[in-house]
Design a protein around this nucleic acid. Structure first.
Lengths: 375, 375
DNA sequence: ACTGACCGTT
DNA sequence: AACGGTCAGT
């Protein structure tokens, strides 16, 4: 059975608000490490990956792994019945067909209890390779929100380009073209813009994740992306690609360099390896992928980019990248800004963009295949 | 003629906002004691009773009783032309077919004047018995609003149960079931939960209204509810009852248990009595009903539950009650929260619920027949 | 298709 | 607190 008590129902509310428009039904995979959710968006163009670490709960217990099939629209309604600062306990018996949610007001003279129906959902666990990217940009999430919203008024897509100059977001529209350039913030200058040893998803706040282990990592036996279901990069046509359920999500699969991605389900290809990350030469590591949690044991929950990291823009790149994405999705992703003040954009040419919001108790990550014709 | 000057047009604006969706046309009955409005909602399921005491006006004069037939949609529009803090004077000549409204800004350098057409409306004064109830719950109006809104996301109706445990609001829906329990707030503990002598509508703040005078009151010459049309309790089928225009609104007319439901028209049954109020024993009185204003001359305008009474929940009960109501109506009633910080729920099994908002210058009360099959 | 109500944002 | 936008109901 599962029993997890969250100090603030608001965390869950914001998380649902962030993804409910993208995904309507999904399995919350619960195990002793925490709760994860991975799903393709309704149109199979983007992939959403959510993690809530067990350690982020006030109390957490999950005897055995169990998937909770939830209709996010229903869960959103039920969560609307909680105040942001209510304590929220979610419980589900093994094999249960209902999820029980209890909200306790701080004042404690109000207790609300809800039982929500669960459903069976095909859980095609998606394989999300943990790869290295040619560029990582960390910026205030509000800034990212503002930029994609502004540009979405002009056009359908945006070209994101990271160069020595900084990061540029440019969109061409019928009536007008727009371009926003963010330069590295002064205080951060030294760190970024320089060749970085390895660009992996950052775990902590503004600190490059320890790449070491990764370097030595398996160099990618086949150097190929696994084939689980996922957003396929190349497939991306003019419009975003629609990935099939059974495809593998090769974040940047055969992409520029290679990263492996084993997906969870098959596990067979797990042994793959990927090799040099873009320009740099660190051999990338692999595996951990979506279950990022394990990345480095991640005991670091609270210290990440969570709420307010440093202000400003931090740019790290090993190679110039230029990719084009659908603004509609980016605008959608940017809703997660309510969860965390900083956002990380990870890019390599021809590989799906990773937009990552790391907060105290976990993260929300979005993968979006680039439109072709960008390079 | 009528001439009444209100210190704040905002009072009228909020009152209209609270009831305009429920009632589109109604008579404002003006007499020397003040202005009252009583009407069945458009679908004849609920009854609304509004009182604006003469003493609550900055200036008030009404030579003879006169009904002002008003289209509330029109009045709402006209009132939108006033700022909340404007002084508002309403005037109507005898037999006039227009209502004159003058708004004077505090600064006095702005005077706006409007004339709104009046209409003839069948004034079937509704008889609202002033009865006793088995349970009275007083709580912050925002809390009530929150609860009924939350539950309305899940289901159509709510079961309200008052027991030693507190007051529970429970609703079952397609996707989820919900239940909110409010316990008596600690500081209030002693007062409530004990056998109350009499549970009548509270007039002041948290004080049981003196029932005395009412006891002696005219026991109802005819002892009946007036014969106006009302919500008939029993009629309530699965869905709320639709009371006929000519029926009498026997809120819980005769006593909690037996409530007669004579249909108002006959008036013959007037002799009924109400008597034992629930558990207690005060003979109920009658008449005053809706014109509650007279209840005790009520000079107390400002001291009532008006804006913020004590915070928290106060529960008084003489018997366990369990009733089911349509959330749609309760959500509608809860709009009155803008007028007053506290709301009173009065209930007896199988009798219409009374939701009462008492503010400085009067009150807005709603009566809603329970759905059957509850309790 | 139009009007009204409700929710969210500024 | 007010205005605008979105969604639902008639």
């Amino acid at each position: 059975m599962l029993e997890a008590k969250l100090a603030e129902a608001g965390t869950l509310k914001k998380m649902l608000d962030a993804i409910k428009e993208l995904v309507t039904d999904a399995n919350f995979e619960c195990n002793e490490e925490g709760i994860t959710l991975q799903a393709m968006d309704n149109s199979h163009v983007a992939l959403v990956s959510v993690l809530l670490e067990a350690t982020g709960f006030k109390r957490y217990r999950c005897d055995r792994p169990m998937p909770l099939g939830v209709n996010l629209t229903s869960l959103t309604k039920v969560l609307k019945c909680a105040k942001d600062d209510d304590e929220c306990t979610i419980k589900a018996a093994d094999e249960a067909d209902v999820l029980n949610l209890v909200y306790e007001a701080k004042s404690s003279d109000r207790i609300a209890e809800y039982d929500m129906k669960l459903m069976d959902i095909d859980s095609d666990t998606l394989g999300i390779p943990d790869t290295e990217y040619d560029a990582r940009v960390t910026m205030p999430s509000s800034e990212f929100t503002r930029i994609v919203r502004d540009l979405s008024l002009l056009g359908e897509s945006v070209r994101i380009e990271v160069s020595k100059e900084g990061i540029r977001f440019a969109s061409d529209g019928e009536a007008a073209n727009g371009s926003v350039l963010l330069r590295q913030s002064d205080a951060i200058g030294k760190v970024a813009q320089s060749k970085v040893t390895s660009l992996k998803k950052e775990d902590g706040d503004g600190e490059v994740v320890d790449v070491d282990e990764e370097d030595e990592d398996e160099e990618a036996p086949d150097g190929k992306v696994k084939k689980e279901k996922g957003v396929k990069t190349e497939a991306a046509e003019d419009d975003d690609v629609d990935m099939d359920e059974d495809e593998e999500f090769k974040a940047n699969s055969d992409g520029e360099e290679e990263q492996d991605e084993d997906e969870g389900d098959e596990g067979s290809e797990s042994g793959k390896k990927r090799k040099k990350s873009s320009s740099s030469n660190k051999p990338s590591k692999k595996a951990k992928t979506a279950s990022s949690s394990k990345r480095k044991g991640k005991g670091k929950k609270a210290d990440s980019d969570d709420e307010d990291g440093e202000p400003g823009v931090r740019i790290e790149m090993n190679a110039h990248v230029s990719l084009t994405f659908s603004l509609k999705y980016l605008v959608n992703f940017s809703k997660s800004a309510t969860l965390c003040n900083r956002v990380q954009l990870m890019m390599s040419n021809d590989v799906p963009l990773l937009v990552s919001y790391e907060f105290g108790q976990g993260h929300i990550r979005y993968y979006l295949a680039p439109k072709i014709g960008d390079d």
